[in-house]
Design a binder for these strands. Structure first.
Lengths: 252, 252
DNA sequence: TGACTATGTTTGTCGGACAATTGGACTATC
DNA sequence: GATAGTCCAATTGTCCGACAAACATAGTCA
């Protein structure tokens, strides 16, 4: 039994619409279809693959959803690169459905963010730096408004990651970053010292990045992330609960 | 012009098949549809949404591709959690299409793997440990076979991540880990010292995890990852080239 | 009881059809 | 000559109806 399973491949008994999707996907991954290239029209595809247009359309939906193709100018279908945002959204969604806990997410950003800060200090551009400073300024003004400050904090961290000029890093943290929103909002809102500590850390990180001091940036970011964890505990939330339940948890 | 873009939202007259997908997705994310639940049949959905079955089928394809639904027993459609494997595959694909470089991927791994090793040392189960030891044993025997050793190395790192019992971490590294395969194969094959160094590191990591010594595990893992980077350079590959081009690069 | 068959259900695929939208060519107006 | 309006062809979104194959179930037969 197990031998047979190892011996024989699935032999492609997939429905036609899946095979069509796979075929186009292969063309894209092989580089024969480049991002931006227009795909044939549905009727043309139907003819080429000897399938009905309905079937072709189903296959196209798969491509569309995987981000490998998108409607250009509302109409024609063009090859595209899956966007970081969309992928991050999918990943976040999946993590929520898997009841991922705060601890799990925190451990990931605790690993990624300090690294991002360090690399940012090494390779940031002037535009990156300006964006960080603008964010700092806005944060100073939003010090009282928990909701706004939360969004600015998330934005700050994303800007740091962008400054590191590393798309893999950006994608990885995008997936987990968004999920912290509710948790962070609770901490910032309930802990009156949180806003000031946050700003201190952000200022220090931005400054270290400006000076090009990677180790300093890494260290501040690490403490900043650990601070978040402490805040989460102080506010009375349980790190072992699914992140999706933050709204329900009694954080009184 | 730029004002108009900021003023007006897209207004979202999305096609029916997208709205259907969104509607079901919302039900899932709200928890009213749980993983495992059977979705209505296509005809039932068509009736419920007052759409044609063809249109419903297009919407279903979107759900299917996003991993939120899958065919159970070949036929009926059931709510599902997007699998880590599938998500990782999509992410890998996206990274390749974005011409992500070795450097970018390596920086992510360099941040994640040491953390994974440290956490693994703290929370690993006996089964995790056994899997690691089995892998070590197999690796000893495959010392000569570059191809096999490459696969075993990737497996070892995945086992470490699994031992950390952190699904977010697992997902993040899955996306980048697979992409290293060709790069790693080249290094192991061309550098005759690589196999031995690799085994030494793996042994030390496994031992530290067994002892529950997180810092030791982290340290060894970190050096192990840095070693990989050195090997990549020694073999003559350029870290700033897209990872997808490893096969083309002259690594002589 | 267990194997077998009949039947209805559900999906995969097909063919054709039509309205709405869009891009482009063409024309009219200032 | 540039702009606006008009028309036409192409393309997509949606619908309708149909049928074969795979499957689940119940009923049948040994």
């Amino acid at each position: 039994m197990s031998d047979a399973k190892a011996l024989f491949q699935p032999l492609e008994p997939a429905p036609a619409y899946k095979r069509l999707c796979q075929a186009i996907e292969d063309e894209i991954m092989a580089g024969r279809l480049k991002p931006g290239d227009l795909l044939p029209t549905e009727t043309a595809l139907a003819e080429a693959f000897a399938l009905n247009r309905s079937t072709v359309r189903e296959g196209i939906r798969l491509l569309e959803q995987s981000g490998l193709a998108e409607r250009i100018a509302g109409r024609r279908l063009a090859v595209a690169r899956p966007s970081t945002k969309a992928l991050g959204r999918r990943a976040s969604q999946a993590l929520v459905l898997h009841d991922v806990t705060f601890r799990e997410l925190w451990q990931v950003i605790a690993a990624l963010e300090p690294a991002a800060a360090a690399y940012a200090a090494e390779v940031r551009s002037d535009a990156d730096l300006k964006a960080l400073k603008d964010n700092l300024e806005a944060s100073e003004e939003a010090k009282g408004d928990g909701r706004a400050l939360t969004e600015l904090d998330l934005a700050f961290h994303e800007l740091v990651a962008k400054a590191a000029h590393n798309r893999a890093l950006l994608l990885a943290r995008e997936a987990v970053g968004q999920l912290f929103y509710p948790a962070f909002a609770v901490v910032v809102t309930r802990l009156d010292t949180a806003a000031e500590r946050l700003l201190t850390a952000h200022r220090a990180i931005a400054e270290a990045i400006e000076r090009g001091d990677g180790e300093e940036a890494r260290g501040w970011m690490q403490r900043h992330i650990e601070d978040f964890h402490r805040g989460y505990l102080l506010v009375g939330l349980d790190p072992e609960q699914p992140i999706a339940s933050v709204n329900q948890q009694d954080a009184g």
